[in-house]
């Protein structure tokens, strides 16, 4: 189990994966938006998405869980 966390205060702009999806190391799983910038969130290992913690439009803070790979 590896959970990808937000690095900064942001709003979830796009969610690119759903639970059950297979992702590769380096795949973009989500795009956050903060201060007029898009921030791609990448998987740091390969695996299957076991949980998506946030939905589009949600506010996230530094350290908040975004996606868990199982």
């Amino acid at each position: 189990m590896a959970t990808i966390e937000s690095d900064t205060v942001a709003v979830v702009w796009k969610v690119l994966v759903a639970e059950g999806d297979a992702v590769e190391d380096g795949d973009t799983v989500m795009i956050l938006e903060s201060m007029k910038m898009e921030i791609p969130v990448e998987a740091e290992e390969s695996g299957t998405v076991s949980k998506v913690h946030v939905e589009v439009g949600a506010s996230v803070a530094e350290g908040d869980p975004l996606v868990t790979l199982g």
Binding site: D7, T8, V9, A10, S34, M35, M37, I39
Partner: peptide
């Protein structure tokens, strides 16, 4: 700017 250059200019509100 409120950005972290070490993290490829990641925005840094606070």
């Amino acid at each position: 700017n409120a950005e972290n250059a070490a993290k490829n200019f990641l925005p840094a509100p606070g």
